[in-house]
Structures are given as C-alpha cells and as structure tokens.
C-alpha cells in the first residue's frame, strides 16, 4: 500500500471523561494510529500499553476519577516518530509517583505500585513530564518509527 506523503505530519486529538472503563476506546484509537504509521506489532503494543498507563495516571492521580474532567490526548504523527501528549487538569503531579528506584530490582519487585512510569520509560523512546501545579500535568511520549530496512522518510 502506498503511503501518503506526511512531510508535514498529521495530528489527531481526542478527549474523554475520566473513567477507566473508557480506556478500551483509547486502545482502539491507538491501534488505528499505529497501523496507519506502520509500526510493527511489538512497537504498536508498546505504544498502546504506554498511552494507557498515562491515561490511567491522569484519571487516577490527576483527576481523582472525577468524570466531569476530560483527559486530552494529542497524537502527532510525524514521518520519523509518533509523539503522544496526555494532558490532565488535576491539582498537580505527585513527584513521588516517579520511582527513584528501578521497580524491577529484586528488592522492589514485589511492590504493588510504582510501575506505571517505569513501564512507559521502558517502552517508549522518550518520556517527559511538564508539571505545572496550576494547570496540571502534560506527559509526552515519543516513539521512533523503525521501518524494515527503509528510511522513515522514504
């Protein structure tokens, strides 16, 4: 299938109320986007898992399950990468959520929490947090496109 010229990139935005039960809708959207960008199965799975983790954090920690508040997603589909921005408008980010230790260390392996951000960092190429207590939290998840023997811009 011939790919469309995406030199300028394409942007998809999506918002939904802070309900965990709606995350499968997000999952479907991410699947569609990674298919469009021709990510392989492993990379597509990693993007989906990471976006769902970010969405879970926004609902649970950012909005405290307040269904009146919307979580915003922006998907920047660039020729070389996908950048997903997840925005919540909650009271602010809890820095303690960022594990200082590797939760896969033997002594931390059995902890029941503190894995979400670690999972995102392991599965994406770059993960950044833009934290503003007045506005909420913006999580930026970047995944490079790796095509089979082709230049991403070919």
């Amino acid at each position: 299938m011939e790919r469309r010229d995406r030199d300028e990139g394409e942007v998809i935005t999506f918002s939904f109320p802070s309900r965990l039960e709606l995350l499968p809708v997000l999952d479907r959207l991410v699947q569609g986007i990674t298919e469009q960008m021709e990510f392989d199965e492993d990379a597509a799975g990693e993007v989906a898992i990471s976006v769902i983790e970010a969405g879970t954090n926004a609902i649970q920690h950012g909005h405290k399950h307040n269904q009146e508040k919307q979580v915003d997603f922006r998907f920047d589909m660039r020729p070389d990468y996908l950048l997903v921005t997840v925005v919540d408008s909650g009271p602010g980010f809890e820095p303690d959520m960022i594990p200082r230790n590797d939760p896969s260390n033997p002594e931390d392996l059995m902890r029941s929490s503190g894995r979400g951000i670690y999972i995102m960092r392991r599965m994406m190429d770059q993960v950044d947090f833009d934290i503003d207590p007045a506005r909420g939290t913006r999580v930026l998840l970047k995944k490079l496109r790796r095509t089979n023997g082709r230049s991403p811009s070919a």
Partner: peptide, 17 residues
C-alpha cells in the same frame, strides 16, 4: 484478558503475596 495496566499488576502481586 485483553490487557493489564500497572494497577492490575499490583493486584496480582498483592494476591500472590
């Protein structure tokens, strides 16, 4: 099960313990 997030993993771990 179509997928599990970190919260789901936490439940499995506490139950395993």
């Amino acid at each position: 099960v179509s997928w599990v997030n970190s919260t789901g993993l936490g439940i499995l771990i506490s139950s395993h313990l």
